[in-house]
Simulated scan of single mutants.
Amino acid sequence: MHADELVYRAATAADISAVVALVESAYRGESGRRGWTTESHLLNGQRTDAQDVGEAIARPDSLVLLAERDAVLLACCHLEKQGDAAYFGMFAVDPTRQTGGIGKRVIAEAERVARAQWGVDRMRMTVIVQREELIAFYERRGYARTGQIKPFPYGDERFGIPRRDDLRFEVLEKPLGEVTA
């Protein structure tokens, strides 16, 4: 194995606490401020919890994909089949390792897995509209703004405690093309 190689695998129940810690470190609190993916300026509170991660791991047509190097968790994302598309979410890269290309590689692997495992032809995600730099990152990966807006779940602290009253999500989508062997 090359020193820079990432190893991908599906998370199990034994990985729940590590996934929660990674996601929280990337999106919330002081460690999240070191990376560019932080939402701390928009939300307080938690980003996910053990129950959410456990349910994502256990649900049919759902998986939490882990990216590791030397058995150290560096990144994760959640994939879920939704009709003829796969939903991509809970994407996190260790804040101390961001901007090194890991995120791009994990997205590419997630797209490959979604096509291979479910035969879907599109990947879909929701991004807080105020996260323009994050939307631009996804646009550079081939995702397009659909114009479809979804409400932010105000009042449900499982998704964080909003610091402003105008948060909402926009749906981004990317065609995945043909499934190749």
Results as ranks from 00 to 15, higher is better:
L43R: 11
C77Q: 05
E24W: 08
T38C: 02
A86L: 10
V53K: 00
R140F: 12
A67I: 01
G103A: 14
Q51I: 09
G147D: 00
D15Q: 04
R97N: 09
T48Q: 10
A50C: 05
T96N: 08
G29T: 04
A18R: 10
L22F: 05
L172C: 00
T37G: 15
D61M: 14
L167M: 13
V64N: 10
W36C: 01
Y138L: 00
P153Q: 15
E170T: 10
Q117K: 11
E133D: 09
Q82K: 12
V171M: 04
L22W: 08
M90H: 14
V19Q: 10
D49A: 13
G89T: 12
W118Y: 14
L176W: 09
F152A: 13
Y8D: 06
D94V: 04
A18Q: 11
L22P: 01
F159G: 07
E139F: 00
G32T: 01
A14E: 11
V23C: 15
V72L: 09
T126W: 13
K81C: 15
A67G: 02
R131V: 07
S62Y: 04
K150M: 15
T146Q: 00
V19G: 06
E68Q: 13
T180A: 12
L134V: 08
D4K: 01
E173I: 01
V127R: 04
Q117M: 09
F88K: 09
R28N: 13
A110G: 08
L79Y: 08
E173Y: 05
S62H: 04
E170P: 02
A136P: 00
A136Y: 05
S62F: 09
I128L: 14
S40W: 02
I135Q: 02
V19Y: 07
P151Q: 14
R105Q: 00
A11I: 03
Q148T: 15
W118I: 12
I161K: 11
H41F: 14
Q46K: 12
S40N: 01
E109S: 10
G177Q: 07
C77G: 10
E133N: 12
G83H: 15
V179M: 03
A56S: 10
G54E: 11
P151W: 12
G100I: 00
L66P: 06
R140Q: 13
A85W: 08
L63A: 02
G101F: 03
E5P: 03
T37P: 12
T38Y: 02
R97S: 05
I149M: 13
R97K: 05
R122N: 07
G103K: 06
K150A: 13
K81Y: 15
A136W: 02
D84G: 15
E133P: 08
E157G: 14
G45W: 06
R34D: 08
K104R: 15
D166M: 12
L42K: 11
Q82C: 11
D166F: 06
P175E: 10
A14Y: 03
C76M: 09
E109N: 09
A18K: 09
V7I: 04
L134R: 03
R9D: 10
A14W: 07
C76K: 08
I161M: 13
P153V: 13
V106P: 01
F137W: 12
E157N: 15
K104D: 15
R33Q: 03
A3D: 04
I16W: 06
V23Y: 06
G177F: 06
V53Q: 01
V93L: 04
L6D: 02
V113F: 07
E139W: 03
D94N: 12
V120S: 04
P175N: 10
L65Y: 01
E132A: 00
